[in-house]
Amino acid sequence: MGSGTGASDAKPMTSWSTLGKRKGRESMKTAIITGAAGFMGSHLVDKLVENDYFVVAIDNLATGTWDNLKHHRDEHVKRLTWDITEYPPDDVLSIDQADVVVHLASAASPIHYRRLALETLRVNSIGTENALKLARKFQARFILGSTSEVYGDPQVSPQSETYWGHVNPNGERACYDEGKRYGEAIAMEYHRQFGLDLRILRFFNCYGPRMQSEDGRVVPNFVRQALEGKPLTVYGDGQQTRSFCYVSDEVEGIYQAIIRDGLSGEVFNIGNPEERTILNFAQAVAKVAGVPLYTEFRPLPADDPTNRCPNIDKAKKYLGWSPKVSLEEGLEKTFAYFKEQLGQ
């Protein structure tokens, strides 16, 4: 799900109906996922269905598509088109049960969150509170999908969960960075004031199949350019660093946060601690593509982080999680998907 319109006259979501009982699903847990038609959300739907969850998939389709879930049968996944910043329609109000609510709704790439800047702020503020209210209604576990962007352009590396960040609150990236920081703040208040069982997950540069080819982030940019025989666009001098985590690893981290007890109020970095410069990553992409490396340098965008590297000691200790998929393997799978999408 992308962000919503967030009309200022929208009714506050103060009550939810609990109509009827789960029919035919007594032995299954129910997960509500916002942003379920998007890249990461759709992979999480796959993971939960594989583990015998019934999934209520919510999205407003601002950046996602139901095509990402077309392989699921209705008895496993209920699709609801809803802008979570607005008052819920009847089909949402009639949801009768939830064991976990996972809030992933938000534009995530610079191209999308600049195009949808106000919507991005609203979905990470109004939308997050509406998702929290939903979890509180059902006394469900709540998972907030946050981001490494809460660290801004960090002055320490690697970044641990205790680092407060270095963020420009007025910059072009602030709609996303500060939106996510606010989302974390209100989530923690629901934990403190209402005892809501929640976990906050900060994702680092997730990539893989179902990313949009025109997403604007470095992985789809490089993969598409390599497939089209174009130079790889490098911003700045290419010495800025990123840490790339394949989507199946990222989703496994979410799943472990869902199923493990005793972690309420905890924050976890979910990412790959293998730090690479952008130029080094470009070399890896060219090698997997089997093409010579050609680059085209452009000016670095404003407030673009100079480094990204997660400290995942906490996730290892409490979630039993660490990434397993190598960059080469992940890129090969990503290339295969984009070849199919681009008709090659």
Rank of each mutant, 00 (worst) to 15 (best):
R122I: 05
G171L: 04
D96Y: 05
T85A: 02
S157P: 08
T120N: 04
E178T: 08
H166E: 13
E184W: 06
H112G: 07
S160K: 13
L144Q: 14
D59R: 06
T63P: 01
D153E: 12
W82F: 14
H72S: 03
A105E: 04
K78W: 05
N124W: 01
F142P: 04
T81Y: 01
W164N: 13
I84Q: 08
N68M: 05
E149D: 15
R79T: 10
L69F: 00
P158D: 08
I58K: 06
D59V: 07
R181C: 05
K70Y: 00
T128F: 01
S160Q: 12
V100A: 02
H71T: 13
N124Y: 05
E184D: 12
E161F: 02
P110F: 00
V150W: 07
V101N: 10
R181T: 03
I58Q: 06
E75S: 10
S160P: 09
L69M: 08
W82Q: 11
D153H: 10
D74K: 15
T65Y: 03
S125L: 11
V101D: 08
R114W: 04
T147G: 05
A108E: 09
L80F: 09
L144H: 13
I95R: 12
K133C: 07
G183I: 04
N130K: 09
L80T: 13
W164T: 15
E86P: 10
K137Q: 14
L80K: 12
H112Y: 12
W66G: 08
Q97S: 15
K137N: 15
V167T: 12
P110D: 04
Y113G: 01
R115Y: 05
R122M: 11
V102N: 08
L80W: 11
N168C: 09
P154A: 05
I95W: 06
G127D: 02
P89K: 13
I111T: 07
E161V: 15
H72W: 03
